[in-house]
């Protein structure tokens, strides 16, 4: 399968994502400059971390005007798996592809550390290879990762099982101490209604080899590979229900 890693001016985790997909996972991967209008036939798209367009105005606010974003939106609407990591998550929020917004961390510090997150949902392309409740130890590196949405929006996210990752202790408790940035209900990542667009603040691509302290993040890349390759059929252009993997994915 082929990953497209979108590169905005100011992206700085694009090479990490490319490395994880291409060298650790052994799949095809390609950088796609933000001025491009095509994803080049990719099967999964990664919006990487960094400071797209210098984070001017608000994090992710300008990136949504990059020409490539029209193609990313189209790809997502057709059911293609899209993963937004850190700044990529912020871009998805500003582009209206995921609900909510980011506030400055409650510590007002740039938080750079390993945290624990629990996998709350396994019926997304990026978590289909996880156990429900699996705890991943993955680094965060952000100043604005304090997820916020109106209470009724958060309730709806919970009800629709769209909260995919939550900050927890090593034993899986979503306590306030385990919340590094003040995110509402310890939300570390979520998915859209159709479940194919996933965003998270922690950096799975920086936790794919033991040499860097953890390879817990690799499971996200393995999951989407399984999702795309599982039946040998690429699902683009099909609704989620029609997708040959939908049943497998939804039953898990």
């Amino acid at each position: 399968m082929k990953f497209a890693v979108v590169v905005f001016p100011g992206s700085n985790c694009d090479h990490d994502a490319y490395h994880a997909a291409k060298h650790v996972l052994g799949q095809d991967a390609e950088f796609v400059w933000h001025k491009e209008t095509s994803l080049g036939g990719a099967d999964a798209v990664i919006l990487p971390g960094g400071f797209a367009h210098g984070d001017y105005l608000r994090t992710g606010a300008i990136a949504r005007f990059s020409p490539i974003m029209a193609a990313v939106k189209r790809f997502a609407e057709e059911g293609g798996p899209v993963l937004g990591i850190c700044n990529g998550f912020q871009v998805l929020l500003e582009a209206g592809m995921l609900p909510g917004a980011m506030l400055r961390n409650r510590s007002v510090k740039f938080q750079c550390e390993h945290v624990h997150i629990s996998v709350e949902q396994t019926d997304t392309p990026f978590t289909v290879g996880c156990r429900r409740g699996q705890i991943l130890r993955i680094p965060i590196a952000h100043g604005e990762g304090n997820y916020y949405a109106e209470p009724d929006v958060v309730d709806r996210l919970e009800k629709n099982r769209q909260v995919v990752f939550r900050y927890t202790t090593a034993s899986g408790e979503a306590t306030d101490e385990a919340n590094p940035n003040g995110s509402v209900r310890n939300i570390a990542g979520l998915c859209n209604d159709a479940r194919n667009v996933v965003g998270l603040m922690p950096h799975p691509e920086r936790a794919c080899e033991l040499a860097v302290g953890s390879k817990d993040g690799l499971v996200l890349f393995e999951s989407v590979t399984k999702f795309v390759m599982g039946s040998g059929v690429i699902f683009r252009g099909q609704s989620r229900e029609d997708h040959p993997l939908a049943e497998t994915v939804l039953q898990k």
Binding site: L103, R104, N105, S107, V108, N146
Partner: peptide
Amino acid sequence: TLKPSVFDPQGTTV
């Protein structure tokens, strides 16, 4: 400005 219901960590720090 941030809505009144939204916590403003920067404002608090200032």
